[in-house]
Simulated scan of single mutants.
Amino acid sequence: MKIAVIDGQGGGIGKSLIEKIIKSDLRNLDIIALGTNALATAGMIKAGARTGATGENAIIVNAGKVDVIMGPIAIVIPNSIMGEITQGISLSIGNSDAMKILIPLNRCNVEIPGTTAYTVGELIDFAIEELGKIQKNSSQ
């Protein structure tokens, strides 16, 4: 199963996702780091992604080639992450047939009720559990 982890700025959420995926018992996953900038991509590759690419075009091209897209919810909101998420990026992710597992962070002027009781680490753990369910269902 091909997974794209998409993040911007320093790639902290993406890095944490990749580290937890690798530590999980999930196998046969091809993790691709897609950063809006080189720092984000490098951090995610360092965390264990097999390969990575940087920038709008890399994200647009690869969003349609993966089975699952993971990252903060901001990746589907144009102009979020301090302007790093372009309309092209958010549109390509939204239009992708890939399953999206998004971390519901209450930033970018978006409030997601029910998420304030969880830490970022707990939200990432929930995302990894969801990835496991998707992988199990796709192999049946």
Rank of each mutant, 00 (worst) to 15 (best):
5 V>D: 06
7 D>L: 07
8 G>L: 14
10 G>Q: 06
10 G>E: 12
11 G>L: 15
11 G>R: 15
11 G>K: 15
12 G>P: 05
13 I>H: 13
14 G>W: 09
16 S>T: 11
17 L>D: 13
21 I>P: 11
21 I>Q: 12
22 I>S: 04
22 I>L: 14
22 I>D: 06
22 I>M: 07
23 K>T: 10
24 S>W: 05
24 S>T: 02
25 D>H: 13
25 D>L: 07
25 D>I: 05
25 D>S: 14
28 N>C: 05
30 D>T: 11
31 I>E: 00
32 I>G: 05
34 L>C: 07
35 G>R: 02
35 G>D: 02
36 T>I: 02
36 T>V: 03
38 A>T: 13
40 A>I: 12
42 A>S: 12
42 A>K: 07
42 A>D: 03
43 G>I: 01
43 G>S: 08
45 I>Y: 01
47 A>T: 09
50 R>K: 15
52 G>P: 00
52 G>V: 00
53 A>F: 14
53 A>G: 12
54 T>H: 03
55 G>W: 03
56 E>Q: 05
56 E>N: 04
57 N>G: 08
57 N>E: 14
57 N>S: 12
60 I>N: 13
60 I>Q: 14
60 I>T: 14
61 V>P: 04
61 V>Q: 11
61 V>S: 09
61 V>H: 10
62 N>K: 04
63 A>W: 06
66 V>G: 05
66 V>W: 09
66 V>I: 12
66 V>P: 07
66 V>K: 05
69 I>K: 08
69 I>P: 10
70 M>P: 08
70 M>Q: 10
70 M>Y: 08
76 V>P: 03
77 I>E: 01
78 P>M: 09
79 N>W: 04
79 N>S: 04
80 S>Q: 10
80 S>P: 10
80 S>M: 10
82 M>E: 06
83 G>H: 03
83 G>Q: 05
83 G>D: 04
84 E>S: 04
84 E>A: 03
86 T>F: 08
87 Q>G: 08
88 G>F: 14
88 G>W: 13
89 I>D: 01
89 I>Y: 01
91 L>V: 08
91 L>W: 08
92 S>V: 01
93 I>D: 06
93 I>Y: 08
94 G>F: 00
94 G>E: 00
94 G>P: 00
95 N>G: 01
96 S>M: 00
96 S>P: 00
98 A>V: 12
98 A>Q: 12
98 A>D: 11
99 M>E: 11
100 K>T: 01
100 K>N: 03
100 K>A: 02
101 I>F: 07
101 I>P: 10
101 I>E: 09
101 I>Y: 10
102 L>D: 05
102 L>W: 02
102 L>H: 05
103 I>S: 10
103 I>V: 14
103 I>N: 11
106 N>Y: 06
111 E>R: 06
111 E>G: 09
112 I>K: 07
114 G>P: 05
115 T>H: 02
116 T>Q: 13
116 T>M: 09
117 A>C: 12
117 A>V: 15
117 A>R: 15
118 Y>C: 03
120 V>Q: 14
120 V>C: 06
120 V>W: 04
120 V>F: 06
121 G>V: 08
122 E>F: 02
122 E>Q: 15
123 L>V: 08
124 I>P: 00
125 D>S: 11
125 D>E: 13
127 A>H: 07
133 K>I: 07
134 I>T: 12
135 Q>P: 00
136 K>S: 13
137 N>I: 13
139 S>W: 01
139 S>E: 14
